[in-house]
């Protein structure tokens, strides 16, 4: 693993080959906002909130920092007018789906996003895939997955698996940037395995 030297927001940063810009930045104490990124999971690159500007060989471009690898002589800018504008737009679009999400509202304040800019489409889930990937990659339970595609894409629990696995786990709940996940689980559990609730040991 060879060492890579790059610049982040004007400061020299040392990183290891194979790291992403996001990892290098976090190690150097520079924060970049993320929604779909999680250390334990494969990079997903779905929400695009971690977009930064990178100047390489005299050309500047916008890249998704959680999947873009570091390289020598990169000059990374984590905040600029353009980056902020993109993040604001992403947040406004997501807020149309999950207007009550604390995570999104907080980021929205930071980037001056207007939560009422777009008509509300209350799907609540923003398709970040954290729950789906966590369940598949970390827990290897595959209890929750995506259905359909495009604007109709949504998460769903497979009731049989959920009845078996989820009650003792629920580790994905706190990962969700909205409360869609919990709501979906409650719905499935009440419809598909109403007795599970009584049989399960009570939590204290």
């Amino acid at each position: 693993m060879s060492e890579v030297l790059l610049q982040i927001d004007g400061n020299e940063v040392r990183a290891t080959e194979g790291m992403t810009i996001l990892e290098a930045a976090r190690e150097a104490g520079v924060s970049i906002p993320t929604l779909c990124h999680h250390e334990k999971l494969e990079a997903h690159g779905g929400c695009r909130l971690c977009m930064v500007e990178v100047e390489e060989r005299g050309r500047s471009k916008l890249v998704v920092s959680c999947i873009y690898p570091v390289a020598n002589d990169q000059a990374v800018t984590t905040r600029s007018e353009q980056v902020d504008r993109i993040r604001k737009m992403i947040l406004e679009l997501l807020l149309a789906h999950a207007p009550d999400s604390e995570t999104l509202l907080e980021l929205g304040r930071e980037y001056g996003a207007d939560k009422d800019r777009f008509d509300k489409q209350a799907s609540f889930c923003i398709n970040c895939g954290l729950c789906v990937r966590y369940c598949a990659e970390v827990k290897k339970a595959d209890a929750v997955g995506f259905l359909d595609r495009g604007t109709r894409r949504d998460i769903a629990f497979i009731p049989e698996i959920a009845a078996r696995e989820c009650w003792q786990c629920k580790e994905c709940f706190p990962l969700c940037p909205t409360s869609a996940l919990q709501a979906a689980y409650m719905l499935v559990s009440s419809l598909a395995f109403p007795e599970a609730r009584h049989q399960a040991p009570s939590e204290c």
């Binding site: 929750v144 995506f146 259905l147 359909d148 595609r149 497979i158």
Partner: peptide, 12 residues
């Protein structure tokens, strides 16, 4: 292959 994966593909 997990059922979630198959449902994802079958609905996609």
């Amino acid at each position: 292959v997990s059922m979630t994966r198959i449902m994802h593909i079958a609905t996609f």
